[in-house]
Design a protein around this nucleic acid. Structure first.
Length: 292
DNA sequence: CAGGTCCCCTGCTGGC
DNA sequence: TGCCAGCAGGGGACCT
């Protein structure tokens, strides 16, 4: 579910609700949620308990909580993950209980105010992963396990020109490269289709044949789509509920390509097509997104 | 090395 | 009504 805009909404929510709070108790309820942690649940819990949240940062679809002992907690939401801040009294009567994978209690220093953090994840593709030796140096720094993740289009270190040149040098279909998080991060299947539609490029286009300035336009289009989605997503969460995406409602209103197979292109009226590219369903206009 | 395929899960939908 | 195939917005391990 979550691409960059949804993860950014979650990051802001966690920043608003958990900054300065200390983990007092952590319970792992499903082993897959800690499958990338060598020491498993025990390592996660002992590493977190007693640590306070100093910052919440993000690159692409990954976020991490910066803790007060030069460590960090990396969080990836996968396809269906949610980070929900709740009142500690909430329990099994909550509909999210069924898919609760990690439960954490946090307490605010001084006031003693308690909050619960629920990691809810139906499909269990998401995970928490603690990492040591994390220290914020500058806006390019990321925890070591994320070193292979490229900057996202919102990143101060992101260069559209050098990313366009990198894409042009690759021998693969254009859409696969947009989805490759080591090329540019944060773009998922929905926003890849939207960016390609906006830039009038075919998802299977050979990038070597595309002028660099058109690839720059594609990356600009991608950033524009992410910005528009963030503006929508930013409206849909309240005080104690850190919304992941608004689920069904908000983004569908402005999608031009994704999910619109069989419907007319909003630019030229041609019927949009659906085709599997790189194992993912792709939606495009066969008239204004011609392959060459 | 780079590119492509498979696979990890659960739940919903639509066709028969 | 019930069953089953197909599909879902991610990414990492493992092939060639």
């Amino acid at each position: 579910m979550p691409e960059l805009p949804e993860v950014e909404v979650v990051r802001r929510g966690l920043e608003d609700h958990l900054l300065g709070y200390t983990f007092t108790n952590v319970a792992v309820l499903h082993p897959r949620a800690v499958r990338h942690t060598i020491g498993g649940a025990e390592e996660l819990c002992t590493g977190l308990e007693g640590r306070s949240v100093q910052a919440v940062r993000r690159r692409g679809k990954y976020m991490w909580l910066e803790l007060d002992d030069a460590s960090a907690l990396i969080v990836h939401l996968g396809m269906s993950g949610q980070m929900l801040v709740k009142d500690p009294v909430v329990g099994a009567e909550d509909p999210n209980w069924k898919h609760l994978r990690i439960h954490a209690l946090l307490q605010q220093h001084g006031t003693g105010v308690q909050r619960a953090l629920w990691f809810v994840d139906q499909r269990t593709f998401g995970y928490w992963r603690p990492t040591k030796n994390w220290e914020w140096k500058d806006q390019l720094s990321v925890p070591q396990p994320l070193a292979h993740i490229a900057p996202d289009p919102f990143d101060p270190g992101f260069s559209t020109v050098s990313t366009a040149q990198l894409i042009k040098s690759k021998k693969s279909e254009l859409k696969r490269l947009l989805l490759d998080q080591t090329v540019v991060s944060g773009i998922g299947n929905i926003y890849a289709d939207e960016a390609l539609w906006r830039a009038r490029l075919h998802p299977q286009q050979n990038p070597g044949r595309v002028a660099t300035h058109r690839l720059v336009e594609l990356l600009d289009a991608a950033r524009g789509v992410l910005e528009a989605a963030l503006a929508e997503g930013g409206t849909s969460f309240d005080a104690l509920y850190v919304d992941v995406s608004g689920q069904s409602g908000y983004f569908e209103r402005f999608l031009s390509a994704y999910g619109r197979a069989g419907q007319p292109c909003l630019r030229c009226g041609e019927t949009l097509q659906r085709r599997v590219v790189g194992g993912r369903s792709s939606h495009f206009c066969p008239r204004c997104q011609r392959r060459y």
